[in-house]
Design a protein around this nucleic acid. Sequence first.
DNA 1: CCATTTGCCTACCATGTCAATAGGTTGTTT
DNA 2: AAACAACCTATTGACATGGTAGGCAAATGG
Lengths: 132, 132
Amino acid sequence: MISTRGRYALRVMIDLAEQEPGRYTPLKDVAERQRISKKYTEAIMAGLSKAGLVDAAHGKGGGYRLNRPAEEYSVGEILRITEGDLAPVACLEHGASPCAYAENCRTLPVWDKLNLMVNEYLDSITLASLAE
Amino acid sequence: MISTRGRYALRVMIDLAEQEPGRYTPLKDVAERQRISKKYTEAIMAGLSKAGLVDAAHGKGGGYRLNRPAEEYSVGEILRITEGDLAPVACLEHGASPCAYAENCRTLPVWDKLNLMVNEYLDSITLASLAE
DNA sequence: CCATTTGCCTACCATGTCAATAGGTTGTTT
DNA sequence: AAACAACCTATTGACATGGTAGGCAAATGG
């Protein structure tokens, strides 16, 4: 359900949240602290950057930093961006072709509520509450 | 998180719960009603049978039937048997090698509680409540 | 006893995702 | 110009998934 990629992304974001706010932190440092390979961290960071969760600066003294205060990120948001979707079943995934038998599917309500529960829980946790 | 296999297994179990109790239902009939290929249904049913969730009878007039009243099955039980595990992250899976940094992992409590929530919810739904 | 029905078992395959790596390019700063 | 750091595109190996094929074993009905 939640892959290594997503879990790493969360750890990376927590790491950034623990740095001095506003300052850029080189990816290399984050990767070393989190014991994630530099290359793999790059791939993950690229997604976070493209989605606008973090801000990047090239060159010496550059690196990454959070774009907003840590209280304004939720775990759900971070995971949805890196994982694409948190839906527990394929038929609820964003952009899934609607199931022809959904109308009288006995199991759909189960997945529906599960989906809601998971998302609500993860949305209720802020990045700040996990840092420091 | 929950694959086709698990979702099919649940539908199959609901189908059996809707048949006359005690009577054997041929796999062929279940597969046709549920619009799942006979062969794939076989593979799924084999797991349910081996785990003792259903009872099988060979030969003419044979088939499958539930081993207990439908009220005594939970969705969680059925899914855990067919999916192996419902853990949202690898480090919580049954038999996973314990993470060396679990002691001071900032994210572990999140996964832990998520795991608990998901299992408790799915365990609270009985097969009977989905049938008929 | 034999044919039919039905479950059971083993193997196989095609596709796709995941984790991770490699190498090079672009942009910034000092 | 040199060092640094982000960015981009491929590629790889391993594994899970969804699904199929063919044959064997057991039970039943006639």
